[in-house]
């Protein structure tokens, strides 16, 4: 799994710990965040431990969850069928409960490719993929992917083979979506865990394909 997003403008040297606020110039909105949090703590509405636990819970969910689901579906056709029939129910088999929203799994095939968006806000299958990447929340992606999805995919370096039709899924309400990518060619020798390691976040959103040939040690913009 490649979790290391390498931001172009991040001057911090550490990959995993976000920088503390101290010593930085804060924006007005950052001051507002501190004020709201402090006041709510002082009034006993929340406490600091709950905030810390909440942040840890966010950090605990990564796209590795979704990758487990995908790899299981590739290795177990019965599971794959249950997953496509009722995504929420099938995920419970793997200990992932996405309620109160419901999971719709959309499968890429020889003829169909699927892409996920939320044009109205940024609804995202957080319990399978963690928090959405910046581009998923961007005006550019939310505006354009419903009208010119092929151009947007090309901006991720993705060209669909001729004859493949494309379906965009706009998460406007209570469903959440996960793309079940195509299992890459020449992956028969890999076991479930090795397959899961190939499955990237972006392939489960549908903007890229899963490949066996990626050089995983390189910093690739995922």
């Amino acid at each position: 799994m490649n979790h290391s997003d390498h931001p172009p403008h991040d001057h911090s040297s550490h990959d995993h710990q976000p920088p503390p606020d101290e010593g930085r110039q804060l924006s007005d909105v950052q001051y507002l965040e501190i004020a709201l949090r402090e006041l709510l703590i002082e009034k006993g509405v929340i406490n600091a431990d709950e905030i810390r636990a909440g942040v840890e819970a966010l950090d605990a969910v990564t796209p590795a969850q979704g990758a487990r689901v995908v790899a299981r579906a590739w290795c177990d056709d019965q599971f794959r069928q249950r997953l496509l029939a009722d995504g929420s129910k099938a995920c419970i088999e793997l200990g992932i409960d996405i309620r109160p929203t419901r999971l719709v799994v959309v499968e890429n095939t020889d003829n169909w490719h699927n892409v996920i968006v939320c044009t109205l806000c940024s609804c995202y299958p957080r319990l399978l993929l963690g928090l959405p990447p910046d581009w998923y929340k961007s005006r550019e992606y939310r505006s354009r992917v419903v009208r010119e999805p092929r151009k947007v995919l090309a901006e991720f370096g993705t060209q669909l083979p001729a004859g493949v039709s494309l379906r965009v899924h706009d998460s406007t309400a209570d469903m959440r979506y996960l793309v079940l990518p195509r299992r890459p060619a020449n992956s028969e020798h890999l076991d479930e865990e090795q397959l899961a390691a190939l499955v990237t976040r972006d392939s489960m959103i549908g903007v890229t394909l899963v490949q066996t040939s990626l050089v995983r040690t390189q910093a690739i913009p995922d």
Binding site: R150, S165, L166, V168, H169, T172
Partner: peptide, 22 residues
């Protein structure tokens, strides 16, 4: 796609958009 946009992509073919609606 062709129902939604007057300027759908030229290679849109059978491309479609699924939207949840009450």
């Amino acid at each position: 796609q062709a129902e939604l946009w007057t300027t759908a992509e030229v290679d849109a073919g059978d491309d479609s958009v699924d939207v949840e609606i009450y």
